[in-house]
Structure formats: structure tokens, C-alpha cells
């Protein structure tokens, strides 16, 4: 067993376990911390796949910003224990789990049946150059999507500020 294989199994199990933790833990704050752990694991998986820059961005954006927001909001609410964690109904719950399990089995089975799509990749690009070509691609082929996302972010920023200001807040003027 080489280091790469060991790393994959380690990261995969950590990511998957903490992902399952998000769903199963009844305290939402532990859920959020589990999700943060998942994000870190996913970022490490990106790094093992050679996407170092994306791995860093994943960590900064998800683990460093989005999840911190989630945790902060949960702590503001201060829900120590939830009264009803899971949805009601045994039969509907069983059906939901069965559907999820079936979907998991189908997807996993499909991937397991198909042979590998492409052979082993043998390109050891230097990380810095990968980021450079990533930038070139972003500003040429995908420039429309990039601009559209910029507009989307602007709209969202305005919308969220509007929502947050609707009542009270630290800067309220009334």
C-alpha cells in the first residue's frame, strides 16, 4: 500500500464519517462542526487530486467563511438541544431512507460496473502553472459565466443587506 492509497482511504473515511455526522447528530452546532470537518476533508481530497488552488479556495470560502456564518447563526439562536430532530412518521421516514439507500446503491453500482473512463493521468504540473492556466480559462472561455456570477453576487449582496436591515440591527436609524 503506497502513501497515495492510504491517504485516499483515510480522507474518504474522515469525509464520509463527518458527512454522516452532519445528518445524524441531533445538536445543530455539532452538525455544523461536522460539516466544517467535511469541508476540510473535501479540500484535502482536492489536494490529492492535484487541484491545489481549488483546495485552498475551498478551505477559504467554505470552511473559513460559509461554515463560520452557519456556526455563528446557530450560536446566536442558542439551540442547545432540539426537541424534534427528525421528521415525523415512521413509515414515511422508512420510505425516505429506503429511497436514499436505493439511490446510493444505484449510483455506486453504476460506477462500479463501468470500467474506468480514462487511463491513469500522468501529468505532474507545477501548482503555480495550473493556477495560471485556470485563470486564463476563466477569463476567456468562461468569461460570460464569470461576469454573470459577478452580477448574481451583487444582487445577492443587495438582497441580503435589505433582508438584514428590515428590522433593528446595529445600524438601525429609528
Amino acid at each position: 500500500m503506497t502513501a497515495d492509497i492510504f491517504l485516499f482511504w483515510l480522507l474518504a473515511s474522515v469525509t464520509l464519517l463527518s458527512g454522516v455526522g452532519v445528518v445524524l447528530v441531533s445538536n445543530p452546532i455539532y452538525s455544523a462542526l461536522c460539516l466544517a470537518m467535511t469541508m476540510v476533508g473535501v479540500s484535502a481530497i482536492f489536494a490529492t487530486l492535484g487541484a491545489y488552488f481549488i483546495a485552498g479556495v475551498q478551505m477559504i470560502v467554505y470552511a473559513g467563511a460559509v461554515m463560520v456564518l452557519f456556526v455563528m447563526v446557530l450560536m446566536l439562536f442558542d439551540l442547545k438541544t432540539e426537541i424534534a430532530t427528525f421528521s415525523r412518521g415512521r413509515i414515511s421516514g422508512a420510505i425516505k431512507i429506503a429511497i436514499v439507500g436505493l439511490l446510493a446503491g444505484l449510483i455506486a453500482g453504476t460506477f462500479a460496473m463501468t470500467t474506468t473512463i480514462a487511463g491513469k493521468p500522468e501529468t505532474k504540473e507545477k501548482a503555480g502553472h495550473a493556477a495560471k492556466s485556470l485563470g486564463e480559462l476563466l477569463f476567456t472561455k468562461y468569461v460570460f459565466g464569470f461576469e454573470a456570477l459577478g452580477v448574481l453576487l451583487l444582487i445577492i449582496a443587495i438582497g441580503v443587506v435589505g433582508l438584514a436591515r428590515s428590522k433593528g440591527g446595529t445600524h438601525a436609524k429609528h
Binding site: F53, G56, M59, I60, G64, A65
Partner: peptide, 16 residues
């Protein structure tokens, strides 16, 4: 290779 990105990523975890 992506030293700066790594450092920013790691130090963004300090909030937790």
C-alpha cells in the same frame, strides 16, 4: 506550491 493560498486557508480556520 500555492503557499499564500494555503496560509490564508489555514488561518481562516482560526474563527472556529
Amino acid at each position: 506550491g500555492v503557499g499564500i493560498v494555503f496560509i490564508l486557508a489555514i488561518s481562516s480556520l482560526a474563527a472556529y
